[in-house]
Design a protein around this nucleic acid. Structure first.
Lengths: 262, 262
DNA sequence: TCTGACTACTCGTCTATACGAGTATGGGTG
DNA sequence: CACCCATACTCGTATAGACGAGTAGTCAGA
């Protein structure tokens, strides 16, 4: 075990009443913030930190778990603890569903990802009829059944987003929307062809910690929240024609909106 | 110590290769999800769980820390571990800065909060001139100095949001905007009076775990992310006249946007 | 009646130890 | 040279114990 150069991490203040594991977490955080450990770099191993600070291993692990909870580091079994690299973020512009972007044969996700130099994939495609949840039913005007379209999006092999669209069955049944691939321009183009000219979208944005199922599905590291976005599409008659419920890995996204001032 | 009724929490599957502390966390999570422990209710104490599951205390604590990280529970020293209640959320509508909402004497925050039956407070008011950070300078068109207005918002005594506005000094110096209270309608009303008619806002929304400073300032519980919103205001000449950098407790907010479909 | 001490509970912190499982490396064997 | 395996490192899980500190209730004494 290589000795830890003492300059990189300070030592503890035994007179302080701050808990030892918090002091260790502070020192490591400072070192990361100051660039002494760069993105992706390996932190000293637990046993090195034990020796350096003269504490027990559980205390060191406690300190590291603080940093994990902050999303600063992640650990890899058998390898070490590493500074978590910031993944490239996908910018979602508020006009991404504007009619003028619906002319290509590819989905918005595919077009954007390729423009950004990433390799897009869509996964877990599932289309079926079902009973809506209370929330979805309320938003859609209480249809008895809905068409549900679920899919997972990946960038360069990494899952980043899980989306579920719900449409009243009387609109979507026996249309291209009920097909796995609804065709160029996506389901919004199909809705307009079916006479539901879109007027506007409502989007609700929340952030929270992921459920265990979301951790699994999106391969989320500790300390990464999710952005939960619920979009409702309205036609020109004021009817809600689709609700899209999306859960995104928060470290992979920034949402951009442009709002008029009047 | 009252015995724990065995029906509420299951027992462990010793044949499973799922870690014991994860199984305990699973059982507690299920019990919470099914409403067997309601919001604000006290979970069994650590020693009760130790006895019930026949494991060591550190294993129980490990399980509880999983639930803390998910934002499901919070612990209070000397009292117990409780199901985290969901605070009332504040809905931020995308038209909240529209001109028609700028006629009252009160700030948008105050008006909204009182309409929702909450007691609003503003805190830590600080107005000063300073050198902009790299990011702020870029967004504002590289002014040498800016006027910074910082404040913290509280609802019913709980801090929920921390906001910092930055304006180019050549716009804001020696105007009501440089006063602690800029007057009715806020700084946007003052900007328009000064001839900077507002055209639109750009908003960027991110979510992440809070820094230790944010945890302290917003009194955040473990497992609560923050929403980071950066809004840039543009006048009709296309000039960026203000950047507002806002950090919100994610469990207290939902952002609502309305987008045109064309 | 009020107050303060005592007690019994809560979670917080820390130590010491043990074993298991994943990863990387080097060296020996075929 | 290619492969396998031993080994030594990583982190993951779990035990048992100790003490500290915050909370709340009881009970005795002023």
């Amino acid at each position: 075990m290589a000795p830890l150069s003492s300059g990189v991490l300070g030592s503890l203040d035994s007179t302080s009443d701050r808990a030892v594991f918090r002091q260790i977490a502070d020192r490591l955080r400072e070192a990361i913030d100051k660039g002494r450990f760069k993105e992706g770099a390996k932190l000293p191993s637990e046993s090195e930190l034990v020796e350096h600070f003269g504490v027990s291993r559980m205390t060191v692990r406690n300190a590291l778990s603080v940093l994990q909870g902050e999303g600063l580091v992640h650990s890899e079994h058998g390898k070490g603890v590493f500074v978590r690299p910031r993944p490239p973020v996908r910018r979602l512009a508020s006009d991404r569903f504007a009619r003028r972007h619906r002319d290509q044969g590819k989905s918005a996700f595919t077009v954007e990802a390729e423009a950004a130099g990433s390799r897009p994939e869509v996964d877990n495609l599932q289309v079926k009829e079902e009973r809506p949840t209370r929330d979805i039913a309320t938003r859609l005007g209480e249809p008895r059944k809905v068409l549900a379209r679920r899919r997972r999006y990946l960038l360069d092999g990494r899952p980043v987003e899980f989306a579920a669209s719900f449409l009243p069955l009387d609109i979507a049944r026996d249309t291209p929307i009920a097909q796995p691939n609804p065709g160029p321009g996506g389901i919004y183009a199909r809705l307009e062809e079916l006479g539901h000219r879109l007027d506007h979208f409502d989007e609700e944005v929340r952030a929270r910690m992921p459920t265990p199922a979301e951790v699994k599905s999106l391969h989320l590291a500790a300390g990464v929240p999710v952005i939960h976005l619920v979009r409702t599409a309205y036609d020109t008659e004021g009817r809600a024609v689709e609700v899209c419920d999306t859960v995104m890995a928060a470290d992979a996204y920034v949402l951009a909106y442009q709002l008029p001032a009047n």
